[in-house]
């Protein structure tokens, strides 16, 4: 199905250290799917492996697109944008278009850029240098770049991490509306459990690349997430809280 993500028994190691140990899960088309877990759990590695930037030692990833191979949009954790670099936001969004030999944009490509910027409410910023935008504006421009080719799948690596709570909410609402209106499957990493609870349909909890109890990663459905949040008083657990929660449940559910 278009936008379906299937990860089966994925194994990734670096220098002999296992990062992902038989990870399996499935994200359904048009679903908001969160990946949560402490630092070093392998969340970003998982996303990069899905994206094809890291070759796994075992298992496989299958992504379904409308025409076979899916179009995947990606918003990374951080980007090195020089404040003085004179690339305009509209120009930056156009970088995400399919690379062609002709140096200039076709009318249909211009329409795609305009549509992506309208979707992310950044059209008014099109002529502004990206280095001069606020953190929230930049993130929306990055999102527009990821959406410019009308992706089947959107991968977001802590894309709201550096934003204030209001900007985080706005960004997540935007992503949710894109996900629902355009049937895009969204896989996002977040340390903000409140946002995960609010916006994710389902989630995957990772802890150091494997289940604490069974040696395989756990696919969390809504019921498990409800259990996770209602079992603690901390609605907005930070990274430290997440570690504590992990430790608390080491010999329990996880």
């Amino acid at each position: 199905m278009t936008g379906e993500i299937r990860v089966d028994n994925l194994q990734v190691s670096f220098n002999g250290e296992t990062i992902l140990d038989h990870v399996s899960f499935q994200a359904n088309p048009g679903e908001m799917f969160a990946i949560i877990g402490p630092n070093g759990a392998g969340k970003s590695t998982l996303l990069k492996t899905i994206l094809g930037l890291i070759r796994p030692q075992g298992g496989h990833v299958s992504l379904e697109g409308e025409t076979g191979k899916p179009i995947v949009g990606y918003v990374p954790q951080s980007r090195t944008i020089d404040d003085e670099t004179p690339i305009q936001a509209g120009d930056f969004v156009s970088l995400g278009l399919k690379v062609r030999i002709i140096p200039w944009m076709s009318p249909s490509e211009r329409r795609s850029v305009k549509r992506a910027m309208e979707m992310t409410h950044t059209l008014h910023l099109a002529k502004k240098p990206i280095g001069k935008l606020s953190g929230g504006e930049r993130q929306r421009v990055f999102l527009a770049q990821a959406l410019v080719r009308a992706p089947d799948i959107l991968l977001l690596d802590e894309s709201t991490a550096n934003l204030d709570p209001n900007a985080q909410e706005q960004m997540m609402q935007l992503i949710k509306s894109v996900c629902h209106e355009h049937k895009v499957t969204v896989l996002f990493i977040s340390h903000d459990l409140h946002l995960v609870k609010e916006y994710a349909d389902r989630a995957l909890f990772m802890s150091r690349g494997h289940y604490e109890t069974g040696g395989v990663n756990h696919v969390m459905d809504n019921k498990a997430m409800e259990w996770l949040y209602h079992s603690t008083d901390h609605e907005k657990l930070g990274r430290r809280g997440l570690f504590e929660m992990d430790r608390e449940h080491k010999t329990g559910y996880f």
Partner: peptide, 23 residues
Amino acid sequence: LALGYRLLKFDSFDQVGAAAAGL
């Protein structure tokens, strides 16, 4: 440079995005 303009622009001004796009 003209032929590779888009490729080069992407990789020069957004290296993370270019890598993610599979360039």
